[in-house]
Design a protein around this nucleic acid. Structure first.
Lengths: 403, 403
DNA sequence: GAAACTTTGTCCGTCGACTTGACAAAGGCG
DNA sequence: CGCCTTTGTCAAGTCGACGGACAAAGTTTC
C-alpha cells in the first residue's frame, strides 16, 4: 500500500479487502480458514471481508471441500463474469476494443482500421468503439474502461501527452471517456499496459518485479515493481526505444541518430530484409517480396526464418543482438529476474530469441544474468488490450500484489 | 507504506507516527496545527502523535511562533541529538566509522586503513571500530548501526553475499553486529547507502525518485524510488559498472571485456593519465607523476585539469562521456529527473561534468533529458557513512517519504 | 479598552475495523 | 459412540482516527 499522505482505517480496510480478493483470485476455490492462514488475518476478519465480496457479487460459495480431520470447509471462488471491463488497444494500424472478464478472457472483440485518421477523427473512432462495447456489455456489470495507447501518457490524469501517429497532444482521453460513459477510465502507454497484463493474468509468473518489452513498430518497456507499474517522474519510464545504441547510426523518426528503434524494431527488420532482397534478387526474401507485390511485413521475414533462409536468419539474429544489449542494460540497472518479450518482432522465433539471450548474458554481470529468465510472453494480438483491462481491474477492485 | 501481507491498525499508527516525525524533521520548527494541515490528519491525532514523540525524547517544544490572527502556536522541533547512529563505510582503502546525529552531522569519526587485511582480519577491524564507537556514544541514545560496503548485499538479512576486495562471501555482518551490540544493524551496498543519504539529508532535493551514481574505484548506482531504496530481485539493482559499453574493450576485473568500469572509473582515468604521461614525458601529467614518485591518483589528474592541462582535460571529458552514456540509459529506462554524481571521480570538475551532461542529453530522448538535472552531490568523504546512517534512521524511526 | 473574531491545543464521545475468546456445527478417528 | 479437530460465526474488547466542543491566547474593530 503506497500512500500519498496519512494512513486511515478506510485504507486499511480497502487494502485487506483487495488482499482477500486477490487471494481468492489466485488460490481459489479456497476456504475462509485457508485465506486466514495465507493472509494472516483472523478468521473473523476474513469472514466479514468475504461476506462483503459476496454481497458485491464478486465472490460465490461453491460447495464444500474435503475435510482434514474437522468440519469440511466451504469453498469460495471469484465469479469470473461478475464484472467486465472494456479494454482498448489504440494501435498504430488499428484500434481494437473488447469486453474482458475478470480472468482476462475476451468476451467480444471489435477492431477498426485507423486508415490514416488522426486528431479529432481518431478520437471519434475511439468513442464509437466504446459506445458499441458499452451497449454490448451486460447491464450493471461494467467496471470501467482501460486504454493502452502508444505515446507518453499521464496515467494519473489519464491525459495523453503526446502520441505521434495519432497526432494527439495533451488530450484528456481518460476524462473524455469517463464523462461520456459515467465509468472509471484508465489510460496507459501500450507497453506498460501489456506489462501489467503479463503480470496480472499469468498465474505462473507472479514474481513481484517484471519487465515486459514490447518490440513492434516502436520499442517500449513496461516496468512492474512490487506489483505496481512504475511510471517515472514524467511517465516516461521504459521508453528505451530512443536511447542511442549505434555510434554512427541512421536517423530515427525521433530526429536523433542510432536509436535502438533504428536497428531492432519491426520497421528496422523489414528494411534490412528489403535491402537484402535487393542485394540478392534470387533469394528467399526477394521471392516473398515479389509474391506480396512489393511489400514485406515482419511476418514474411519470420516465415523466411522458419523456412531456414540464412539471410533472414542473420537479420533476425542481428536485431536480437541489439535488443539483447538493451536487455543487458535493463538487467544491470534494475536486477529484475523476469523479462518478457512482446510484440510482433517476437514472431521471428528462436534465432532471434537466442540472440537476445546470448547478447544479454554476455553483456550483463554474470552473477545477475545467470538467474534471469528471458521469455516470449503472451503472443496473442490482445496483449495490450488485456493489459489495459488488467490495469483497470487492479485499480478498481484494489487487487493487491501477491506476496 | 509497502506491505508484505495484511494491513493492521498498528501499521497505520506506525505510518502516521513516521509521517508526523518526518514533517517536523523537514518543516520544523512547526506547530501542531500546521502539521495537521500538511498531513491532513486531525489536530487531535497530531497532538497525540506529537505527544508520543515528545515522550520518546525525539521532539521538543521550542517556544511560540508568531500569531496569524489567533492564539500563537507552540512550535515543536526534532531534538537533533536525541539519537545517534553508528555509520560505517567499509571502503576499499580504509574503514571509516562515525557517530552521526539525526541531522546527519558527524559527531565523532574514526578511520582505520585496511592495509590489505581481508576475511577474518577485516571483520575483526570492523568489530573493533564498532566497539570503540559504542563506548563513545552517549548512553541510551544509540539507535543502531548502518553499514555501507562494496559488493552485493542482501539488505533484508544484512548478509554480504560477495565483496571481492575484502574476500567476504555470505558473511552475515548484520547479524554479527546486532548480536555483538544488541542494537539493530542494517547493511547495504555503498552506492545505495550513499543514494539514500543524498535523499534523506539533502533538504532541497526531496523528489520522490532519485538516482545517485558513485564513481570511484568501482561504479555503482543507488536507485531511490518513492523514497525507498530499490534493491531488485537479487539485491543487484544499480550495478551498472559491469555492463559492457565498449565493443572491443579491455579486460575488466570481473573477467569480461569493455565494462563501464574499464573506461569511466578512477582506475581507468588514472591509467589513461599514466599512458598519457608516458607518451608526453614533458607534459603536466608526467611532471606530476615524477613529483609523486611514480604514482598518480585521481586527484592529481583533477589538479592537472584545474591547472588547465589539455591532455588531462581530454581524459576527463572522455571518461565523462562514457558515464554520460550510462546516465542516458538510466534516464531512458527509469525517467528519473534527479541524478546525483558521487565519488572521487567527481573531483575532475566541470570538464568532466559537462561531458557527462552533454553525452546524456545527446543520447536520451530529448523530451526526457530536458528536464533532468545531473549534479555533483555531497562531496565530503562521509557520503557513504552518512547514507548508511540515513538508512538505519529511516528504518528505525519509520521516517516516511515526503509527499 | 471592551467586544468580536481567529487560531491553537486538548478533552471527550463516537465509530470503524481488527482481535480475542467462546461456541455451535460438522467432520474424522479410535 | 465419544473424543478430537477444523470451520465459521457471534459478542465483547481494544486500538486509533475522527468530529465537535471548549478554554486559552492571540488580533481586529469599534
Amino acid at each position: 500500500m503506497r500512500l500519498a499522505t496519512k494512513a486511515t482505517h478506510q485504507q486499511t480496510r480497502a487494502f485487506n479487502h483487495g488482499l482477500v480478493l486477490r487471494t481468492i483470485y489466485d488460490l481459489g476455490p479456497i476456504s475462509r480458514a485457508e485465506i486466514a492462514r495465507v493472509t494472516e488475518l483472523t478468521r473473523t476478519s476474513v469472514s466479514e471481508l468475504v461476506g462483503e465480496a459476496i454481497d458485491e457479487g464478486l465472490v460465490e460459495e461453491v460447495g464444500r471441500g474435503p475435510s482434514s480431520g474437522g468440519k469440511a470447509p466451504i469453498l469460495v471462488q471469484v465469479v469470473e463474469d461478475a464484472r467486465v471491463v472494456i479494454g482498448l488497444d489504440l494501435g498504430e494500424q488499428a484500434f481494437a476494443g473488447a469486453l474482458v472478464d475478470l480472468r482476462g478472457r475476451v468476451q467480444r472483440r471489435i477492431e477498426v482500421p485507423v486508415d490514416g485518421r488522426d486528431g479529432k477523427a481518431a478520437l471519434g473512432a475511439v468513442e464509437r468503439l466504446v459506445d458499441e462495447l458499452v451497449d454490448a456489455a451486460p447491464a450493471g456489470r461494467l467496471l470501467g474502461i482501460g486504454v493502452g495507447t502508444p505515446g507518453l501518457v499521464d496515467t494519473e490524469t489519464g491525459e495523453i501527452r503526446w502520441a505521434v501517429n495519432l497526432d494527439w497532444q495533451d488530450l484528456p482521453l481518460g476524462r473524455i471517456l469517463a464523462e461520456r460513459t459515467g465509468l472509471p477510465a484508465f489510460v496507459a502507454n501500450d507497453s506498460r499496459a501489456a506489462a501489467m497484463g503479463e503480470y496480472l493474468f499469468d498465474v505462473n509468473r507472479r514474481a513481484p518485479n517484471l519487465v515486459a518489452i514490447k518490440i513492434g513498430h516502436g520499442i517500449g518497456a513496461g516496468i512492474v515493481l512490487g506489483g505496481e507499474l512504475f511510471a517515472g517522474d514524467g511517465f516516461g519510464a521504459g521508453e528505451i526505444g530512443h536511447t542511442s545504441v549505434v555510434d554512427d547510426g541512421v536517423e530515427c523518426r525521433c530526429g536523433r541518430f542510432g536509436c535502438l528503434e533504428t536497428v531492432a524494431s519491426s520497421r528496422a527488420v523489414v528494411e534490412q530484409a528489403l535491402a537484402e532482397a535487393a542485394r540478392h534478387p534470387d533469394g528467399d526474401l526477394a521471392r516473398r517480396l515479389a509474391q506480396n507485390g512489393g511489400e514485406l511485413t515482419i511476418d514474411d521475414v519470420a516465415e523466411a526464418v522458419r523456412a531456414g533462409d540464412e539471410q533472414a536468419r542473420r537479420i533476425a539474429a542481428a536485431a536480437g543482438r541489439w535488443l539483447g544489449r538493451a536487455v543487458a542494460a535493463l538487467i544491470g540497472t534494475l536486477d529484475i529476474r523476469h523479462v518478457v518479450l512482446l510484440g510482433n518482432v517476437t514472431h521471428l522465433g528462436d534465432p532471434w530469441l537466442d540472440a537476445v539471450r546470448d547478447e544479454a548474458a554476455r553483456r550483463a554481470l554474470t552473477l545477475l544474468s545467470r538467474e534471469t529468465s528471458i521469455e516470449i510472453g503472451g503472443t496473442s494480438e490482445d496483449t495490450v488490450l488485456l493489459g489495459a483491462s488488467a490495469l483497470l481491474m487492479s485499480r478498481e477492485l484494489g487487487l493487491v500484489p501477491a506476496r
